[in-house]
Design a protein around this nucleic acid. Sequence first.
DNA 1: TACTCACAG
DNA 2: GGCTGTGAGTA
Length: 643
Amino acid sequence: MLMSKFTWNDLIQLNSVTTSYLSPLSCMAHIDVNAFFAQVEQIRCDYTRDDPVVCVQWNSIIAVSYAARKYGISRMDTIHEAMKKCDHLIPIHTAVFKKGESWWTYYDGYGSWMKEKEKQLPPDNYKVSLDPYRRESRKLFKIFKEYCYSVEKASVDEVFLDLGRLCFEDLMFSDDEVFQKSEAMQAIRNTFINGEYDLQTALPSLPDELKNLEFTGMVFNPANRPLLNDWDDIIFALASRETQKMRDVIKESLGYTTSCGIARTKNVAKLGSNFRKPDAQTIIKNNCLEDFLDNGSFEITSFWTLGGKLGKEICQVLNLPPKDSIKYIRNTWANSPKELESFLEKQLEERGGQFNELTTIDSTNIHTLAKKIFELSRGVHPVQLNTRPLVKSMMSNKNMRSSSCKSLIDCIDWLEVFSGELATRIQELEQEYNKVIIPRSATVLMKTTLGETYRKTTQLHNRDSKLACQDLLNATSKMAAELDKKYAEPNSKKFYPLTNMNLVISNFEILDLKKTVLDMFGNQAQVYEKNNDERNKDEMAEEEDHSTVIAAEEKTEELQCQKCDLFFPNTKEFQEHLDFHFASKLSDSLNGIGNDSRNLSVGEQRLLFSTKRPSSNSKRILSNGKKRKTAKGSGNILSFFSR
DNA sequence: TACTCACAG
DNA sequence: GGCTGTGAGTA
């Protein structure tokens, strides 16, 4: 009997938030918003996608809408060049702070392209604000979080999604007809639910009925390879539907078009999202991986983190050809990363322990590097999603024109802007995540015309544990005055005018705004709780949500595990219990992966198998529940409390 | 901790 | 090219 390439373990590992990226069935997506800043302005100002909008900062264009690209306009053009290419161009300037003011505004109708002198926005007296884009970014991120268990915010306009768990659930629980009608699929589902699988055993081969499943978006397949051949293809097809759903919601609710790439790894997914734009998604199946990497538009330096000096150095050291470097790597070191590593070692030896110009590659990192290059060239370099902490530092910066900053008074005017910007950014973060965020240090930096930099750091002590713009201004003005006194007064000619000035706040203390049940009814004061570990904020918010959700949900559901006849009061605990079965299975028969979860505390198990359930899918598992009573409308309360 | 460099969008 | 951000390495 024909079997799949994949084992039960590969499949079930998809469901683990912490190790899904290591499964050969893993499935990642990268989504980025096309010409983000331009789209934000297009939507804000009520233009359509066909209007040639560009987003402008001083004289340069920082984002070109796809409508404007049709005229051959690129980011390199100045605004005046662009207007020559398209006479009905719609330039929109970013929001700005005015020197001496602590808030930003849009000055629509103002900009360097305006003839009237009073409608200019001279960089001397204004500072660009990117706040509007951060706000929109947060809205986007929120939507992704609603639909997907595991989301990494890669930048203001892009995210990575680990779709493993979502696809796993689709496979096991979705009502899709293709699955419902397939007896073979039902058998697999039952095997799973009843825990009658052996992790080391190969999955059955793909039932013929499933070969009707359709992808959404473009499958990269110039070589016409079989579309649905094994379970990885099924996972990718499901993934393509999931990302399409999210992208549709974003397009309909916020108005943004996005591009998406789906592949086994983050690295390839990212190349994929960039492959077809705008408003498109590209699926790079495992059996088309090398076709994709070799299609002519990529080199080894196309991969993330290899775009700079490190990539150049790798090209030199490995003697890579200028074209088809990825294929060359695959063919030259065909069998193992070890071969590549020995080659690097030899090269290193020949050059006396150090490569030419840079010192980035040395004996301490060639092992890791060799493995990485080997895997990247095959499109299988596994990288986990990175859940970033809420904030590490925050900077407000201004490059000065000659006349912008000639005295201490000017410095303080700019500090007003910086303080205002940072204070509102902190405030917005606080509101969004229900936290109190207190920066404990602030650094003021000044750069003189001669290129010297002077800085001063101070500890912040806020009496009411809230960062007010005024507090920050007070603290930083003091520092500015000290710097002025120390460096400007003795030899004033060399100090002013400044060429750059910035303010950085860091060392954040993050307090939870713990809501008790009572306080939800408005009867009890809010309580701050100190959070002194490194857990990131998403995780925290999640836990909070759960506690309220469970409380309301508890009486409404009853689920039974077929395996041990236990009943469970809610979906969360039921899922947790199923997770427990996986964990046991894992530890029984696996060497290396996973701990013995039976000995783990609930909290530790949760780390292994997150039980977070995106709201849009929250009832899905019930569609397959064996025993369940009808929910008795606690929905209103629920939706009121959760966020 | 403070500072610089590399890399990215 | 201007601007904002993170992570690695170094002292």
